[in-house]
Amino acid sequence: MEIWDLHCHLSGLPGRTPDERLGKLIEYADRMGIARLCVYMGMEWAYDPSPEKLREDNDAVLRAIGRYPDRAFGFAYLNPKHTQASLDELNRCVRDGPMVGVKLWVAMRCNAPELDPLIARATELKAVIFQHTWLKITGNLPGESTPFDLVELAKRHPNATLICGHSGGDWERGLRAIRPHKNIFADLAGGDPTAGVTEMAVRELGANRVIYGSDVAGRSFASQLAKVYGANIPDSSRRLILGENLKRLLRPILGQKGIRV
């Protein structure tokens, strides 16, 4: 079964340039049998990136994926605090460039109205939208979204394809929060390989709404793949989670760009 990884980064890897780092990441992906990587954000991250930093980060991803067009896809990093700059990045990286998705992190909680023009434009472009979420008992960052925030956004944008990053971290609550909203998909990446997460996601959302991702290089491919390999689910579900679901979500935009998978 072909494995696509929804959630990869260039930070925390050896290499002076983005393409050197992606090359290194692909070496390890090869060891683990992973065919395609979705990459977003730059070499060093900023919680609240300026328009210049957004452009720099997206340039890094463009350079990296440009070297490995058959192995990696890029998502454009946006900041809702800078509406026009983010719209410009969307057009530059997705409409006119090779990127296929959007990454939103912790600059602003995603229930804010400032996100509306970005989500609307991304949906017009058929880009998938990845929103980091976490529910921390230790306290979220000021701009850090929860799955509940994402639900508010999903209600306003029923045609958008939204991915709930990390399944909300506290997945037992996060998965329940997104359960009724069919345009929200669960990203398995980034938490410990706690047994039961994938079984619950499949039971409560259905296997076609659950997507494997790793959150490398901070996490390992190993610990995150184990969530799928180790889960007590049918092989048909495993196939969907490891690659088929992401392919299905990306097929419209890939088709538009003339990329066949």
């Binding site: 390890y28 060891r31 683990m32 410990d192 390989p193 706690t194 047994a195 390992s220 491919f221 190993a222 610990s223 793949l225 184990a226 969530k227 390999y229 180790g230 889960a231």
Partner: peptide, 15 residues
């Protein structure tokens, strides 16, 4: 294990 999927540690040896 069993709190973590036991496959994770074995896959780390492979990675």
């Amino acid at each position: 294990a069993p709190l973590f999927y036991c496959e994770a540690a074995r896959l780390k040896l492979k990675e």
